[in-house]
Each structure stands twice: as structure tokens, then as C-alpha cells.
Design a protein around this nucleic acid. Sequence first.
DNA 1: CCCTGATTCGC
DNA 2: GCGAATCAGG
Length: 235
Amino acid sequence: MSWTDERIEKLTKMWEGGATASQIADELGGVSRNAVIGKAHRLGLKARPSPVKPNDKADAPAAAPKAAKPAPAPEPRPAPAPKAAAPVAAAPVAPPPPPAPRPAPQAPAAPAVAATNDAPAAPQPRIVSVGPGGFLRQGPGDQQAPIPPAPPRRLVPARPSPEIADKTSLLDLNDRICRWPMGHPGEPDFHFCGEKVNPGFPYCVDHCGRAYQAQLPRGHRRPPPPMPFGGPRVR
DNA sequence: CCCTGATTCGC
DNA sequence: GCGAATCAGG
């Protein structure tokens, strides 16, 4: 098996969605999890809580049970995204989303952001910007609102548009229609969205909104990112 | 043992 | 670039 664009794309999405290398591997088929990991690294997709990696802690004087160590080369790795500045003792990394997607009832985001620290005077309730394709980027307050409660799985959504009467199969894909996958490959109802693409993007406007999300400031990240591929397969 | 991701290194 | 082998923590 070779790394086609489609496969790389899927690998990327699943990896970023928090799927494990094994899940990705047998979802793609024909590759080992090692291959997936190797490829992910080559793609520069690293950075995921690894069970065996640098437990990088700058210092925790209050709660640092282990202090008996010559403290060799600290070697502060040049992290591309500085994730410091949290005064409260917070977990160093957010735990990856559990493999089981729970259809959370539409919990309206708390009306107030509960004054994190400061900035109570100038509350910017909405951060709305326009992406390169013209779709709206969502702010913290209204992000998941229009999106229906997480599809449990194995559902075939209504045809996105009447002109696409049948499922959009792999063979129907071209650069004008949305390639967002629905369901799992290999299953009878697997198909693609098929909506007209947001010009310049591989997806329709709706799915662009899912695929590309504005990087929110490190204070209030949404813990469960939507998994575009429909969540891990349940066997 | 099972799982995980990271890294190495011959191809 | 690729991925099996290996490492190492949970």
C-alpha cells in the first residue's frame, strides 16, 4: 500500500482526532500501526500524549515528590506552542478524547465564561472571523451550536442535496464536491458528503467549519474535538 | 501479557 | 520515504 493523498488525509484527520495508531492502521488497512506512526512523524504530526515520553515539567515546588535527582541536562525542548502561563496548577496536557463518542445533549455553553482571570471589563462575546473560503469561524461561545448532536454512528444522513439522489462514492469524487466521509469505509453505507465544495477547499462550507477551526486561546479549549470520520469503529 | 507512541536504521 | 524492530511507559 502506498500513501495516497486520500490515505494521508485520513491518517491526518484521525490522528488529530485522537484515534490511536492501531485504530488508524486498521481503518486504513494494509498498513501496520508502526507504519502509521512513522508516517505521522514524517508528516510532522507528532505531539500527542505518549505513554513513554518526556514528562516535561518545568518545576513544581509545591507538589514535587521526586526531587532526588542530579537533574541532568534540563534540555528545554523548543516547544512551538508555548503552553505556559497558567497560574493554577493544571494538568500538563489535556487527556485525549476517549474512543467512545458520547452524544452529548446540546448543552448550551455557560452564558458567562466565568471570569477566568481578568478581562472582565472588555468581554468580547463573539470572535467571528471569516476564513479564506468565506466560511465563518466560530467563536468560543457559539462554536458547536449549529452542529446537531454527535451522530452516534452508522447513520446515513439525509442526502445533502436532492440532485445527489444516490450515495456519493469514491468514484464520484472530483474537486468540486465535498469529500467529507460519512460512515466507515468498507461498510455498505459509506459514502461522501457530496455537497458542492467551498471554493478552494476540499469540503463544503459546513464541513469546512468542522475541518478547519480557529485555534482558540489556551484558556478554554474545547476538550472533545469532533471526529470527522465518525468515531472509532466499534467491533 | 496487553496496550500505547517514539525512535532507530536498513532498505 | 518507508516501516519492522526495538524501546519504554501504562
